[in-house]
């Protein structure tokens, strides 16, 4: 008998009467852990709660100190929209992120199928793609700056979507590879025996099975592009293609005391990401952890 079997037998042999007190001890512990983790989550929320509080405080109210508004000052919101064309930047951010996701998936779905299924050739592609992720993105800044200018895509939303779409390919392949590997090979081999070619079996058999993974990868790549700053700052030098992070960065530097407006722009940028993340929490968690468990 192995140790593990012995353990199972021991647990099985345990008298049933022992259970209730143990379970209650366990549930106490669970409540305690929930309380502890909730406190940690609340502490971690402090910077953002402070931003939310700043967004409804007047300048004097901010400078007087204190964590909470002494009275609600909603004027920051219309003032911000009057001071900068926030809507324009929101549209840019969303267009760049959505466009980049399409490009990323067009490259990464077949790519991940290849890395997962093509044996040694697939392994070689995976190694190359992952090592490209190790290089810092700043390597690409100057070369892509000249490339975009030659294509006349500097300062355009299209150019930025192209760059972000390419930049996220390694992450997407890394995530999707795990999902493809979980598809039983037998299903696919049966499809091949039935006369489906590899392309058709990818489209009609594998793709429906990895749809949750594709959704997770799309979500994560959307966040990455939406949050991206280095390329947006470097390739969008006038407002025509600038995104929300670039807009917010423009508030910095010159001794800016418009705390309220900075807070408003921050919240406008953060809110959609949080809504998406909570709405799709299962996908997000499954997607992120699939990469890790390889």
């Amino acid at each position: 008998m192995t140790t593990l079997e012995a353990v199972r037998e021991e647990t099985a042999a345990e008298p049933v009467t022992k259970r209730p007190p143990r379970r209650s001890a366990r549930s106490h512990r669970r409540t305690g852990l929930t309380a502890l983790l909730s406190v940690i989550a609340l502490l971690m929320a402090v910077p953002l709660l402070y931003v939310a509080s700043l967004s409804v405080r007047s300048r004097d109210d901010v400078l007087n100190g204190g964590l909470l508004p002494s009275h609600l000052f909603w004027r920051n919101w219309p003032d911000t929209f009057r001071a900068v064309e926030v809507g324009h930047y929101i549209v840019n951010s969303w267009t760049v992120a959505a466009g980049s996701v399409v490009l990323t998936l067009l490259i990464a779905v077949p790519g991940a199928y290849f890395t997962a299924r093509a044996g040694r050739r697939g392994g070689r592609l995976a190694t190359l793609v992952l090592s490209s992720y190790c290089a810092p993105p700043v390597v690409a800044v100057l070369p892509l700056f000249y490339l975009l200018r030659n294509l006349e895509l500097n300062n355009t939303v299209t150019g930025l979507a192209l760059v972000d779409g390419l930049a996220n390919v390694p992450v997407a392949i890394w995530l999707l590879d795990g999902f493809v590997r979980k598809v039983p090979k037998e299903i696919e081999e049966a499809a091949w025996l039935d006369g489906l070619g590899p392309w058709a079996s990818l489209r009609r058999v594998v793709l429906p099975l990895i749809a949750p993974g594709v959704a997770a990868a799309a979500l994560i790549c959307f966040f990455l592009s939406y949050n991206e700053f280095l390329f947006a700052l470097s390739f969008a030098q006038d407002s025509s293609a600038q995104t929300l992070p670039v807009l917010l960065s423009l508030f910095q530097g010159d001794k800016n005391v418009e705390f309220g407006q900075q807070a408003v722009v921050s919240l406008i940028g953060i809110a959609p990401v949080y809504v998406l993340a909570v709405a799709a929490q299962r996908r997000l968690v499954a997607g992120l952890s699939s990469g890790a468990l390889k």
Binding site: V46, L48, Y50, Y226, L248, Q262, G269, A277, L284
Partner: peptide
Amino acid sequence: LGTLLLLPLVTPPVMVGVAWKLLLAPVGGA
């Protein structure tokens, strides 16, 4: 709870920076 703890990860880093900068501002910071 796990998702709530995960939210900092998806926050745009520029917004993260600004939030902390406001939090730590010598005058008017929390």
